[in-house]
Amino acid sequence: MSDESINPEDDIPRDDVLAAELSLGLLTGDELAQAARRARIDQTFAGLVEDWDIHFSTLTDDIAPVAPPKGVFKKIKADAYPESPKRIWQNLGIVPAFLCAGAAAITLLVALQFGGYMQPDTVTPTSVARVVAQDNSLVVAAAYVGDSGQLFVERQVGASAQGRSLELWVIAGDAAPVSLGILAIDETIDEIIVPENLRDQMVGATLAISDEPFGGSPTGAPTGAVLAAGEITTL
């Protein structure tokens, strides 16, 4: 391996050079694996590596800060916090079920595949809907948790047109559509808290999605084309 010698009279221990090489990332292959292993088990050596890490890290002092895009922390939270819509949606086990449901443009009753992986504190949906465009250009899956009034929606296919918004409505019986809000553009999963006065009307109602000006309907009623609709069905 290292045949070229480091001057033996030099009182810098060989380990220090190895630590610097590891810290800088110069090593590859076996040398890297061995040095990395040593840093895990040998505290003295790990201390040398850390000393170099600290020295080298000052090479970043001159690097100007760059503000990350606004949505990044939201994405971090969506992965980090267990009650984030993304995490809950993943736990619902609903995604694969919907994706396998085929192209039928009717509301499907989906048998949720609750597996053994479900956590005891997992949110349990009481009803679901599949909100689908005639031509399948827009497919949104929804799961409603009756106890808490949470409605999780996942935009599985399609997106809003440039400069437009997709707005979600609930239509209970013959009542006028009531807006549940617009679907996020940069996220595929939304959590919506259904207003209390609507909660007991959710089952059997229809979810619909309309094309609206950016930011949503200015009138409080749908103004654009209804792109997709589907009935909310009890599980």
Partner: peptide
């Protein structure tokens, strides 16, 4: 080109 699969985890030496 790099044979490296994963870069080293540096242990925290508990100073």
């Amino acid at each position: 080109s790099s044979p490296l699969e994963d870069a080293p985890e540096i242990a925290e030496p508990g100073l």
